[in-house]
Simulated scan of single mutants.
Amino acid sequence: MAFMKILVALGFLAILASLGSALFFMMRTGKDDQKRGQRMAWALALRVGLSILLFVCMLLAWKLGYIQPTGVPLE
């Protein structure tokens, strides 16, 4: 169970790192705006891909019984 928590935390950190990378490329000044925009778009696409992968992994872990929901009861 601790492994899943570490894996989720690493996934969130990777998503935040990708978002920070996109911010860096957006704020960077330079002559080559097209290349900067392409790198920023790639970083944002990577962030979306990592988010989808994390969601699918969490859904799969729930289906396999590795994690259990602990939300508020419906009553």
Rank of each mutant, 00 (worst) to 15 (best):
M1A: 10
F3P: 00
F3G: 03
M4V: 14
M4A: 15
M4L: 14
K5C: 05
L7I: 03
L7H: 01
L10H: 06
L13Y: 02
I15H: 03
I15V: 05
I15P: 00
I15G: 00
L16R: 05
L16E: 04
L16P: 00
S18L: 10
S18T: 12
L19A: 13
S21T: 15
L23V: 06
F24E: 06
F24I: 07
G30F: 02
G30S: 05
D33C: 03
D33W: 06
D33G: 02
D33T: 09
Q34E: 11
R36P: 00
G37H: 07
R39L: 04
M40V: 11
A41F: 12
A41I: 07
W42G: 06
L44M: 14
L44S: 12
A45S: 14
L46C: 08
R47L: 07
V48T: 14
G49D: 03
G49P: 01
G49K: 06
G49W: 03
L50M: 05
L50H: 03
I52A: 14
I52C: 13
I52Q: 12
I52L: 15
L53K: 11
F55V: 14
F55N: 12
F55G: 09
V56E: 08
V56R: 09
C57E: 13
C57L: 11
C57R: 13
M58R: 05
M58I: 03
M58G: 02
L60T: 14
L60W: 07
A61M: 11
A61D: 08
A61Y: 08
A61H: 12
K63N: 11
L64I: 15
L64N: 14
G65N: 09
G65E: 05
G65A: 13
Y66P: 00
Y66T: 07
Q68L: 01
Q68W: 00
T70A: 03
T70F: 01
V72A: 03
V72W: 02
P73M: 00
P73K: 00
L74Q: 13
L74K: 13
E75N: 09
E75K: 14
